[in-house]
Design a protein around this nucleic acid. Structure first.
Lengths: 209, 209
DNA sequence: GCGAAGGGTGAACCGTGATTCACTGTTCGC
DNA sequence: GCGAACAGTGAATCACGGTTCACCCTTCGC
């Protein structure tokens, strides 16, 4: 069962990426040293450098992969044009929060942990992508008069920041729950001026706890 | 003009703190090495350790001082009980944004840059203090029925996060302006369910751009 | 005035963890 | 088969910046 060189190479590269991802998901970036990744992947430290030019590049790829998967998920919800924008916004934000709470260490690593410049770069790009997704949604919502007029880019940033910050505490001490998610979504919908039905009448009563 | 030992000591300590603050304000924490601080303060690196047990402690004090000053400022606005809570909230948030935009590098260092654990600790405490200030304000606002019922702690976190994230971009590229600040404050007031007057009638129309 | 106590000095030290490299074993084209 | 090319190895090396320390000089109490 002779394995070709390229197959070997690809497999090794994959194993390293998987090991690195695993290390981050378990202990965060801080726990993910090159030595540790090598150990997990069952290769020598030097071998890492046959596949990646530097630790930063390796983890930039790890982050990109993980973050893109998240983004794709959220993006799909946001792009389901059979539903009105505000509903999609709510669904996307809810999914964002739920997924973060379900994988806390990874979420923390993806959005808040101190990291290499190379990784920070990947994180910034990812954040920009999220901002775009939400900004688009907001613009649509405003057009449909489901949402109040607003600066979509800025509001999108603010939403991302609000969710991050509000989730970080719960991520750390496992206090996340349905109530938390619901509160956050309500916060967001109010922020963007969504009120049940905005066409024609105004005045929807505002939730009573 | 014999200078007493204790005067000397106090002055040196002050000079080191000032130099450290200056270094952070100019280049952020990354640019603030012990050697650099010593150079600025006009002392030897070793001397730093006559006054502070470690770099972390030194900068924890720097951060605490700077952050407390900011907090005191905001806190004062928030505590002016002659005005209704919602108005104070708006004023406090506006001040927060304006001050951050006025001192971008410092603001970035205070709220977002990666730092020592010791400094991170100081930052966390400061953030908690902000959360408290805003949470208190929110509770008052809810009681006065100026704001919708909400989870004050969570909403306060979200507000802090929203402002941070939304400000970081502008902090970097100097695009801050009155419109930005106004948009952010509007975002926040909507998020917490403030509508011009909430007593008695509902239904205040929601701004038209 | 004198010795003790401290502050000041900065070059050397050290811990950490990424990166290199001389060597080995395997695969591929011919 | 044969040798060039290349993946794998892991101990040694390196870079970095915080921290120490042996020595000096000033201040202080007496």
């Amino acid at each position: 069962m002779a394995v070709s060189r390229v197959e070997r190479r690809t497999a090794a590269r994959g194993a390293i990426l998987a090991a690195a991802t695993e290390a981050v998901a378990e202990g965060g970036y801080a726990a993910a040293s090159v030595t540790e990744v090598a150990r997990r992947a069952g290769v020598a430290t030097g071998s890492i450098y046959r596949h990646f030019p530097s630790k930063g590049e390796l983890f930039a790829e790890v982050f990109r992969t993980a973050a893109d998967a998240e983004l794709a998920f959220i993006s799909q919800i946001a792009g389901d044009t059979t539903k009105p924008p505000a509903e999609r916004l709510a669904a996307a934000l809810e999914a964002f929060a739920r997924r973060a709470l379900a994988a806390p260490t990874l979420a923390w690593a993806l959005m808040a942990e101190p990291v290499d410049p190379a990784v920070e770069q990947a994180r910034l790009e990812n954040k920009r992508a999220y901002r775009e997704v939400f900004a688009t949604l907001l613009r649509e919502g405003v057009e449909h008069e489901e949402l109040r007029p607003l600066d979509a880019e800025l509001a999108a940033s603010a939403l991302v920041g609000a969710f991050q910050e509000a989730l970080i505490g719960p991520l750390a001490d496992h206090t996340g729950g349905d109530a938390l998610v619901a509160s956050l979504v309500t916060f967001a919908l109010h922020a963007v001026g969504h009120q049940e039905e905005r066409h024609g009448r105004r005045a929807a009563p505002v939730e009573h706890a």
